[in-house]
Nucleic acid binder design. Structure first.
Lengths: 351, 351
DNA sequence: CGCGAGGATGCAATCGTATTCATCCCGTAT
DNA sequence: ATACGGGATGAATACGATTGCATCCTCGCG
């Protein structure tokens, strides 16, 4: 009835009010069966009344835990101006939800290559484990990842699953995804399929997509033309430029497989800009199925990575590591999503 | 030389190695001038060598701080399936960077209406202050915000600046933005400008944009037609449906002002789908300038909210509150960004 | 040669919770 | 009636850093 006010109540305050010891309060608030149900309820009631919440610093100090997961996004841009990879951003929401469901908070951190992120988070007890997004490039990160392992830090990477690789990985079967994309274009009668994307060893995920693409071509007895392969990093402008480059080189092609939706969107813009119709003249397929893929015009056919499932997998894995359960790296199956940009729908295509 | 290994070094371990007291170590690591420079350097060296990092729980317990800002995103969707508002997501990156620059970590949390978020974060010492995104709807949140204030929680809201409103706010001058959008369309000779967006008191930001739009019409002596106003929440589908609805009602219009880029993109899709050319037949203007606005086809003319500036402002404000400096609510100026969808560029328009 | 000032460091008391171990109480079996 | 067992609670301590205060040393000056 009389609402008890108090600035910063502690468990000791509650103990005093409830007429029990602080130890009992601590137990009661954690729902310990050691405390009689009646007492427990009474204590919890008082806590609620006082707007009391366990001091996480104190609890963490005692238990050596933080109940927090650090989400490290590799900040490719390096600068303060650029946008973060939207694919990772949209993953973030699902990760946060999944973590909350398991009682973990999520700390985000944009990391640059020069940063000393490799140990700090866990060593400082800010986080119990790390989720790494954008670190698919193992060549660059090898030493840092090794340092993480050496420091006994718990971490999970979103990226290609590679054997003999330190740490645990959740990733998408990129090769299969690239295969599906190319096979679909071939099934539509397309034969000259341009490939847009970076395939250096620095980008193993994109390289895998390329490998899948090649595999599909060979399976269909279509001879790949090196002139149709253009390197392009993951930016809309670069997708645009890649197509400009193909056109300037006088290459003829009837389809484009872009290693990323972002690149695909740039490619479409360049095509339309050059008076080439999509999908009538050129079919376009992207990769990722990012939120806007369905909403650009024409709606983008793409290879979906189920980011919700991915997020759940990442959180499951890191929580598993934290709670010392066995965890395995897993490869998720991508899925072709057919929309308008490839021309398979609505019979809009060349008849 | 000999790399000293140690599982979880504490400041006491370092003290022992350095041959000083633990207190001195603590001071040295915080760069206190009380410690002689030589000693300080030596201690820091040892700390680095041992891969030692200050235990944040212990430090936080002692200092009653966490050096963490909680970023609360209102999870409009409520469900686990939907995407988070991309506008907020892209803000997140900048907020994280700005916070890092000031020595703060960022904790993210998707909150639903039913959640008891109003006090927990600060009371539990998980965060020193809160940034609220997506809480523009003060009618719904009034009591929760009041509770925050009552609990002496430090928070900053991204949203409309309203007088007599508890707490501090950073926002964009939505009315002016709406005015600019409509005035631009009028200057292109458009007279029948549809307005797409929710304007209930639950959405004061959108209502303000509508007010600006009305003001521009009146200033140009154009009589607003109620039939051209369609309610639509912030989803691409709903933008699509809004245009469908206008067309089904047989309304004639030569422009669309969508209260959001997401809605605008849906509107464009519906228009193109109906065989209506954009911008030749209908000009479209959106609001926000989200990352993809420039990259859809046709590129979207829109009213930009400078999210980088906004993020800096929010972080400045919350850090100011935390460090007990005076802070004021501020209103930022939006800016019209002319691209293709309005027809002002390239002389593509009806001549 | 003594004394005071001030720079450098150490001592020890917190911060609020979780948990081990001891204690107490009560019912039941002998 | 007594001893015993187990359920419920309390006392005491540890977690690792920060910080006010005491201490000590050195140097300059009278």
């Amino acid at each position: 009835m009389g609402s008890l006010k108090m600035a910063n109540p502690t468990s000791r305050d509650i103990a005093e009010i409830a007429g029990v010891s602080q130890a009992t309060v601590s137990r009661a608030l954690r729902n310990s069966p050691l405390v009689r149900k009646e007492t427990r309820d009474r204590i919890q009631e008082i806590a609620k009344e006082l707007n009391y919440f366990v001091n996480r610093n104190a609890a963490g100090l005692r238990t050596h835990q933080s109940n927090t997961i650090a989400l490290l996004l590799f900040d490719e841009t390096g600068g303060a101006d650029a946008q973060i990879n939207p694919f990772f951003l949209s993953m973030l929401g699902y990760i946060s939800r999944a973590a909350a469901r398991r009682g973990y908070d999520v700390l985000i951190s944009l990391q640059q290559l020069s940063d000393d992120w490799h140990v700090e988070y866990q060593a400082s007890h800010r986080a119990d484990g790390l989720i790494l997004l954008g670190y698919g490039n193992y060549v660059t990160y090898r030493e840092k990842l090794a340092a993480l392992s050496a420091a006994n830090t718990r971490y999970v990477i979103w990226g290609p699953v590679i054997k003999d690789h330190p740490g645990h990985t959740i990733g998408c079967d990129n090769e299969n995804g690239g295969f599906q994309a190319a096979r679909h274009l071939l099934s539509l009668g397309r034969k000259r399929i341009a490939f847009l994307g970076q395939t250096s060893p620095r980008s193993p995920e994109f390289s895998a997509r390329y490998a899948g693409y090649m595999q599909a071509l060979l399976a269909a007895n279509v001879h790949p033309d090196p002139g149709l392969k253009v390197d392009a990093d993951n930016l809309e402008e670069l997708g645009y430029q890649a197509v400009e480059q193909l056109l300037a080189a006088g290459e003829s092609f009837d389809a484009v497989f872009a290693v990323t939706d972002v690149i695909a969107i740039g490619a479409v813009r360049a095509l339309l800009n050059a008076g080439i119709r999509v999908p009538e003249d050129v079919s376009v397929v992207g990769f990722d199925d990012m939120p806007l893929a369905a909403h650009v015009t024409p709606a983008l056919t793409t290879v979906r990575q189920d980011i919700r499932l991915a997020a759940d997998g990442l959180v499951d894995a890191i929580v598993g590591l934290i709670e010392e359960r066995p965890v395995e790296s897993t490869l998720m199956a991508p899925k072709l999503v057919v929309r308008e940009s490839c021309g398979a729908k609505k019979g809009v295509r060349h008849k």
